[in-house]
């Protein structure tokens, strides 16, 4: 995926209309803030027997963080909590790897973040919502 294609996807998701829309009954939630830049992410999740039925978010954050949150929600909805956490681990590892490493096939829908490998200071922006996801599943509401 070239940089312009990545940019288009990230801009689209940074302006997601789903920002601020939450499911009605939630089983897990979390809030996280990066104190250095002020990026703030909230996740509210409705699980049923370990399957993520619905997930909503609110992100008051930079474009990358907001886009990452929106894409996270799109990816994990319908997954089991274990699969979602596994995806979070793979995503974190991949973003932090050097440019020379191939982007994993299982993260092809998140390949727009591959371009962040050249800009270490934006990696924290992309990873913040995935940390929020892990935090949400530490204990139910």
């Amino acid at each position: 995926m070239n940089q312009e294609e990545a940019r288009k996807i990230l801009i689209e998701h940074s302006r997601s209309v789903k920002n601020g829309i939450f499911p009605e009954s939630i089983t897990h939630d979390s809030k996280i803030t990066n104190p250095i830049c002020g990026d703030h992410v909230e996740l509210k999740i409705a699980c049923d027997q370990n399957e993520i039925k619905k997930i909503g978010f609110k992100a008051v954050a930079c474009a990358i963080c907001t886009a990452s949150t929106s894409l996270l929600c799109k990816e994990v909805e319908g997954l089991t909590t274990d699969k979602a956490l596994e995806l979070a681990g793979t995503f974190e590892t991949s973003v932090l790897e050097p440019q020379s490493c191939a982007w994993p096939v299982e993260l092809s829908r998140l390949q727009c973040f591959e371009h962040l490998r050249v800009n270490p200071s934006r990696k924290a922006c992309a990873l913040l919502p995935w940390v929020a996801l892990k935090k949400a599943f530490m204990r139910p509401v």
Binding site: Q3, R7, S14, I64, C65, S121, R122
Partner: peptide
């Protein structure tokens, strides 16, 4: 550049 710059 809010996407590939520093985000501000």
């Amino acid at each position: 550049d809010e996407i590939f710059g520093l985000g501000v």
